[in-house]
Amino acid sequence: MTETNPTVNSAGYEVPPELRQNVAITTLDKIWNMGRRYSVWPMMFGLACCAIEMICTAASRYDLARFGMEVMRPSPRQSDLMIVSGTVTKKMIPQIVRLYNQMPEPKYVLAMGACASGGGPFKEGYNVVSGVDQYVPVDVYVPGCPPTPQALLHGLMKLQEKIDSESITQVRWYGKEDIPAIPVPLLGPDLIDPRDNELIKQETSKKPAAPAAAPAAPAPAAEAAS
Protein backbone atom coordinates (compact mmCIF):
# COMPACT_ATOMS: atom_id res chain seq x y z
CA MET A 1 0.00 0.00 0.00
CA THR A 2 1.41 3.34 -0.97
CA GLU A 3 1.73 5.95 1.67
CA THR A 4 -0.43 8.46 -0.13
CA ASN A 5 -3.52 6.43 -0.64
CA PRO A 6 -6.09 9.08 0.11
CA THR A 7 -8.99 6.69 0.20
CA VAL A 8 -7.65 4.78 3.16
CA ASN A 9 -5.37 6.95 5.23
CA SER A 10 -7.40 8.83 7.70
CA ALA A 11 -6.52 12.41 8.43
CA GLY A 12 -5.78 13.27 11.98
CA TYR A 13 -3.52 10.38 12.85
CA GLU A 14 0.11 11.01 12.06
CA VAL A 15 2.12 7.95 11.09
CA PRO A 16 5.88 8.37 11.54
CA PRO A 17 7.58 8.65 8.13
CA GLU A 18 9.64 5.48 8.55
CA LEU A 19 6.51 3.43 9.12
CA ARG A 20 4.44 4.82 6.26
CA GLN A 21 5.33 1.96 3.93
CA ASN A 22 3.97 -0.56 6.38
CA VAL A 23 1.39 1.08 8.57
CA ALA A 24 -1.81 2.87 7.73
CA ILE A 25 -4.16 4.23 10.32
CA THR A 26 -7.68 4.37 9.09
CA THR A 27 -11.26 4.24 10.17
CA LEU A 28 -13.38 1.19 9.80
CA ASP A 29 -15.67 3.08 7.46
CA LYS A 30 -12.88 3.94 5.08
CA ILE A 31 -11.47 0.49 4.76
CA TRP A 32 -14.95 -1.02 4.52
CA ASN A 33 -15.91 1.42 1.80
CA MET A 34 -12.69 0.87 -0.06
CA GLY A 35 -13.39 -2.82 -0.22
CA ARG A 36 -16.88 -2.19 -1.49
CA ARG A 37 -16.14 0.50 -4.01
CA TYR A 38 -13.58 -1.55 -5.89
CA SER A 39 -15.72 -4.65 -6.15
CA VAL A 40 -19.10 -3.46 -7.33
CA TRP A 41 -20.48 -6.29 -9.39
CA PRO A 42 -23.02 -5.09 -11.90
CA MET A 43 -25.84 -7.26 -13.08
CA MET A 44 -25.64 -8.36 -16.71
CA PHE A 45 -28.86 -6.69 -17.54
CA GLY A 46 -29.36 -4.87 -20.79
CA LEU A 47 -32.58 -3.25 -21.83
CA ALA A 48 -32.05 -1.24 -24.96
CA CYS A 49 -29.61 0.91 -26.88
CA CYS A 50 -27.70 1.90 -23.76
CA ALA A 51 -26.92 -1.75 -23.11
CA ILE A 52 -24.72 -1.76 -26.19
CA GLU A 53 -22.75 1.14 -24.77
CA MET A 54 -22.60 -0.70 -21.47
CA ILE A 55 -21.09 -3.72 -23.19
CA CYS A 56 -18.63 -1.42 -24.95
CA THR A 57 -17.71 -0.02 -21.55
CA ALA A 58 -16.97 -3.51 -20.35
CA ALA A 59 -15.00 -4.32 -23.53
CA SER A 60 -11.36 -3.67 -24.11
CA ARG A 61 -11.34 0.02 -24.95
CA TYR A 62 -12.90 1.28 -21.75
CA ASP A 63 -12.32 -1.81 -19.65
CA LEU A 64 -14.55 -1.85 -16.63
CA ALA A 65 -12.13 -4.29 -15.00
CA ARG A 66 -9.96 -1.35 -14.03
CA PHE A 67 -12.66 -0.45 -11.53
CA GLY A 68 -13.12 -3.97 -10.25
CA MET A 69 -16.51 -4.10 -11.90
CA GLU A 70 -15.89 -6.56 -14.70
CA VAL A 71 -17.68 -9.43 -13.00
CA MET A 72 -21.04 -9.02 -14.65
CA ARG A 73 -23.39 -11.45 -13.01
CA PRO A 74 -26.45 -12.62 -14.91
CA SER A 75 -28.08 -13.49 -11.61
CA PRO A 76 -29.42 -10.76 -9.34
CA ARG A 77 -28.49 -12.83 -6.29
CA GLN A 78 -24.81 -12.23 -6.91
CA SER A 79 -24.80 -8.62 -7.95
CA ASP A 80 -24.50 -5.30 -6.18
CA LEU A 81 -25.39 -2.89 -8.90
CA MET A 82 -28.21 -2.78 -11.38
CA ILE A 83 -27.39 -0.66 -14.38
CA VAL A 84 -30.78 0.13 -15.87
CA SER A 85 -29.53 0.57 -19.39
CA GLY A 86 -32.36 1.62 -21.60
CA THR A 87 -36.03 2.32 -21.97
CA VAL A 88 -38.11 0.86 -19.18
CA THR A 89 -41.42 -0.35 -20.53
CA LYS A 90 -44.58 -1.22 -18.70
CA LYS A 91 -44.27 -4.81 -19.78
CA MET A 92 -40.75 -4.99 -18.39
CA ILE A 93 -41.10 -3.10 -15.11
CA PRO A 94 -42.59 -6.06 -13.15
CA GLN A 95 -39.45 -8.01 -14.00
CA ILE A 96 -37.18 -5.13 -13.07
CA VAL A 97 -38.85 -4.73 -9.70
CA ARG A 98 -38.66 -8.47 -9.13
CA LEU A 99 -34.97 -8.49 -9.98
CA TYR A 100 -34.37 -5.56 -7.69
CA ASN A 101 -36.12 -7.33 -4.86
CA GLN A 102 -33.96 -10.38 -5.43
CA MET A 103 -30.70 -8.48 -5.17
CA PRO A 104 -29.05 -8.75 -1.76
CA GLU A 105 -28.23 -5.61 0.20
CA PRO A 106 -26.20 -3.49 -0.19
CA LYS A 107 -27.59 -2.79 -3.62
CA TYR A 108 -27.36 0.18 -5.91
CA VAL A 109 -29.20 1.28 -9.01
CA LEU A 110 -27.70 3.37 -11.77
CA ALA A 111 -30.10 4.83 -14.31
CA MET A 112 -28.17 4.96 -17.55
CA GLY A 113 -29.38 7.34 -20.17
CA ALA A 114 -32.36 9.60 -20.61
CA CYS A 115 -34.91 6.78 -20.90
CA ALA A 116 -34.06 5.09 -17.63
CA SER A 117 -33.77 8.43 -15.84
CA GLY A 118 -36.97 10.04 -16.96
CA GLY A 119 -38.56 8.35 -19.93
CA GLY A 120 -36.33 9.82 -22.59
CA PRO A 121 -37.46 10.51 -26.14
CA PHE A 122 -40.04 7.73 -25.87
CA LYS A 123 -41.60 9.19 -22.74
CA GLU A 124 -44.96 9.97 -24.33
CA GLY A 125 -45.41 6.38 -25.54
CA TYR A 126 -48.22 4.31 -24.08
CA ASN A 127 -45.95 1.46 -23.02
CA VAL A 128 -43.12 3.50 -21.53
CA VAL A 129 -42.45 4.10 -17.86
CA SER A 130 -41.25 7.64 -17.28
CA GLY A 131 -38.22 6.89 -15.20
CA VAL A 132 -37.28 3.74 -13.38
CA ASP A 133 -37.18 5.77 -10.15
CA GLN A 134 -40.97 5.65 -10.04
CA TYR A 135 -40.60 2.04 -8.92
CA VAL A 136 -37.10 1.42 -7.60
CA PRO A 137 -34.84 3.93 -5.84
CA VAL A 138 -32.04 5.20 -8.06
CA ASP A 139 -28.62 6.22 -6.76
CA VAL A 140 -26.97 7.77 -9.79
CA TYR A 141 -28.42 9.22 -12.97
CA VAL A 142 -26.32 9.39 -16.11
CA PRO A 143 -27.83 11.69 -18.77
CA GLY A 144 -27.25 11.23 -22.45
CA CYS A 145 -28.90 9.37 -25.26
CA PRO A 146 -27.01 7.13 -25.13
CA PRO A 147 -24.29 8.16 -22.67
CA THR A 148 -20.91 7.39 -24.18
CA PRO A 149 -18.87 4.73 -22.37
CA GLN A 150 -16.80 7.46 -20.76
CA ALA A 151 -19.96 9.12 -19.49
CA LEU A 152 -21.03 5.81 -17.97
CA LEU A 153 -17.63 5.45 -16.34
CA HIS A 154 -18.06 8.91 -14.90
CA GLY A 155 -21.41 7.79 -13.51
CA LEU A 156 -19.81 4.73 -11.96
CA MET A 157 -17.18 6.93 -10.33
CA LYS A 158 -20.02 9.01 -8.93
CA LEU A 159 -21.43 5.83 -7.49
CA GLN A 160 -18.07 5.08 -5.89
CA GLU A 161 -18.22 8.55 -4.39
CA LYS A 162 -21.60 7.73 -2.97
CA ILE A 163 -20.34 4.45 -1.53
CA ASP A 164 -17.48 6.35 0.07
CA SER A 165 -19.86 8.67 1.82
CA GLU A 166 -21.68 5.87 3.60
CA SER A 167 -20.96 4.86 7.16
CA ILE A 168 -21.23 1.34 8.49
CA THR A 169 -23.11 2.55 11.54
CA GLN A 170 -25.84 4.26 9.57
CA VAL A 171 -26.55 2.15 6.52
CA ARG A 172 -30.08 0.85 6.29
CA TRP A 173 -29.23 -2.80 5.70
CA TYR A 174 -27.64 -3.25 9.10
CA GLY A 175 -30.55 -1.54 10.79
CA LYS A 176 -33.01 -3.32 13.00
CA GLU A 177 -36.09 -3.05 10.78
CA ASP A 178 -36.59 -5.21 7.75
CA ILE A 179 -36.36 -3.49 4.44
CA PRO A 180 -39.71 -4.12 2.79
CA ALA A 181 -39.74 -5.52 -0.74
CA ILE A 182 -41.16 -3.29 -3.41
CA PRO A 183 -44.58 -4.54 -4.54
CA VAL A 184 -44.41 -5.92 -8.06
CA PRO A 185 -46.62 -4.02 -10.52
CA LEU A 186 -49.30 -5.93 -12.41
CA LEU A 187 -50.23 -5.88 -16.07
CA GLY A 188 -53.90 -4.98 -16.09
CA PRO A 189 -55.78 -2.73 -18.50
CA ASP A 190 -52.77 -0.54 -17.88
CA LEU A 191 -49.84 -0.99 -15.56
CA ILE A 192 -51.07 -1.30 -11.96
CA ASP A 193 -48.79 -0.25 -9.16
CA PRO A 194 -50.21 -1.95 -6.06
CA ARG A 195 -49.15 1.06 -3.99
CA ASP A 196 -51.58 3.18 -6.02
CA ASN A 197 -54.59 0.91 -5.62
CA GLU A 198 -56.59 3.32 -3.49
CA LEU A 199 -55.87 6.22 -5.77
CA ILE A 200 -56.80 4.23 -8.86
CA LYS A 201 -60.11 3.26 -7.29
CA GLN A 202 -60.77 6.86 -6.42
CA GLU A 203 -59.96 8.14 -9.88
CA THR A 204 -61.85 5.50 -11.84
CA SER A 205 -64.99 5.91 -9.78
CA LYS A 206 -65.18 9.61 -10.62
CA LYS A 207 -67.82 10.89 -12.99
CA PRO A 208 -66.85 10.39 -16.66
CA ALA A 209 -66.63 14.14 -17.23
CA ALA A 210 -63.80 14.42 -14.73
CA PRO A 211 -60.69 13.19 -16.57
CA ALA A 212 -59.17 16.37 -17.91
CA ALA A 213 -55.49 15.62 -18.15
CA ALA A 214 -55.75 11.91 -18.81
CA PRO A 215 -58.55 10.66 -21.00
CA ALA A 216 -59.33 7.18 -19.79
CA ALA A 217 -58.17 4.38 -22.02
CA PRO A 218 -61.23 3.19 -23.85
CA ALA A 219 -62.15 -0.42 -23.40
CA PRO A 220 -62.28 -2.37 -26.67
CA ALA A 221 -66.03 -2.27 -26.86
CA ALA A 222 -66.36 1.34 -25.82
CA GLU A 223 -63.77 2.31 -28.34
CA ALA A 224 -65.50 0.82 -31.31
CA ALA A 225 -68.54 2.88 -30.45
CA SER A 226 -66.67 6.16 -30.14
Binding site: S117, G131, D133, Y141, P143, A151, M157, K158
Partner: peptide, 8 residues
Protein backbone atom coordinates in the same frame (compact mmCIF):
# COMPACT_ATOMS: atom_id res chain seq x y z
CA UNK B 1 -20.49 14.35 -21.20
CA UNK B 2 -19.52 14.12 -17.54
CA UNK B 3 -22.90 15.01 -16.16
CA UNK B 4 -23.84 12.18 -13.83
CA UNK B 5 -25.80 13.32 -10.81
CA UNK B 6 -27.46 11.97 -7.71
CA UNK B 7 -30.78 13.70 -8.17
CA UNK B 8 -32.67 14.23 -11.35
Amino acid sequence: YEMASFDR
